[in-house]
Each structure stands twice: as structure tokens, then as C-alpha cells.
Amino acid sequence: MKKRILVVDDEEGLRLLYKEELEEAGWEVTLAASGEESLRRIEEGKIDLVLLDIKMPGMDGVEVLRHVKERWKDLPVVLCTAYPHYKHEFGTWASDAYVIKSSDLTELKQTLKDILGKKR
């Protein structure tokens, strides 16, 4: 069965880009435009991995990450942001991977493949 990735990003263009690229790479994609929405989508179930933007209005990625790790300990989370410096900040250590945003999604897709391949 295809693995399902939840893409959380407040930027509409990027959601579209991720959805198309990741579906093309063979995954199912669910979208969420905010931190709050992402938690609702996870509650609905069937998510195998969360691709999470950090900087979002309202509940930001770091907060989402905390909620996810509290409630769904085994759900992998990949943080994705424009800023390399978050890597060092407390609160992002718990993520399974950290990817710097780029219009070239090669690195991101490889990271997702590594993590989803490892699982089960």
C-alpha cells in the first residue's frame, strides 16, 4: 500500500508543488495549511509521515512537532524550512530529519524515501 505523507505549509504554491512532486514519486499526499489543521488531519488517521514547515502563523511547526511527539510517538516528522539555523534550536531535535527548503526537491524526496523505507 502507498504511504501517505501529510504536507503542512501555509504557502499555497508550495503545497501544490509538494503534492504534485510527491504523488509523482509514488506517495499519497494529504495537505494542511496550518498547524491546527495538521493535527486534525493526523487524528483522522492513515498518515505515515508529516512534512512540516516551521514558520507558520498561529501554531508553528515547532509546536506541532511537540504535539505530534506527545501523542503519536512513532509518527516520523521531517522539518522543512527556509532557515538553516533552526537546526540548532531546542524543540527541533525531536524531528526525524531536517531539510532546508529548495525548489529542487531531490534532497527532500531522498530523505522521505530513507525514512519511509526504514519503517516496517
Partner: peptide, 18 residues
């Protein structure tokens, strides 16, 4: 400003790639 520019720029570049 950089943050506000970077995200749309990634959409432009990524979607153009597609």
C-alpha cells in the same frame, strides 16, 4: 523580507520545474 520572498520563490521555481 527574505523569508517572505523565499517561499513564493520556491513555488515559482518548483512549479516551473514541473
Amino acid at each position: 523580507i527574505v523569508h517572505e520572498i523565499k517561499n513564493p520563490l520556491l513555488s515559482i521555481g518548483g512549479l516551473a520545474n514541473r
